[in-house]
């Protein structure tokens, strides 16, 4: 299980419209929100990074989302598996995908 916290920036006027979209992702939980500032803290629980990427893509594609950025990732029990090489996380991929996003 990988836990990731992310900051979601959205248009504050569209909070109501955005809520169902967020709730449709069972892996995503809202931990904090500051509607007036258009920010939310999400914690995403996924099995691996590929799943994480799918969620990120999905959010960024939503018109009402201004930005979706990771803050921290906790690898939980998977740390041992990572070190042993059982699971591979390719940081280059994630990095490249980030760089290709419009700036």
């Amino acid at each position: 299980m990988i836990f990731t916290s992310a900051v979601l920036e959205f248009d504050k006027n569209s909070y109501e419209k955005l809520l169902p979209f967020i709730e449709s992702h069972s892996e995503v939980e809202i931990y904090e929100k500051d509607i007036n500032a258009g920010k939310m803290i999400l914690v995403i629980s996924t099995e691996d990074d590929a799943q994480l990427e799918v969620i990120q893509k999905d959010f960024l594609a939503n018109e009402l989302v201004i930005d979706f950025t990771y803050h921290a990732i906790h690898f939980g029990e998977s740390v041992d598996k990572l070190i042993d090489g059982e699971i591979k996380i390719d940081f280059e991929d994630i990095n490249n995908k980030k760089k290709n996003k419009p700036q």
Partner: peptide
């Protein structure tokens, strides 16, 4: 090494 990979990844966060 994996640890260095993590460091690099973390340090290139847009945050």
């Amino acid at each position: 090494s994996f640890i260095n990979k993590i460091k690099l990844f973390l340090n290139s966060f847009e945050d």
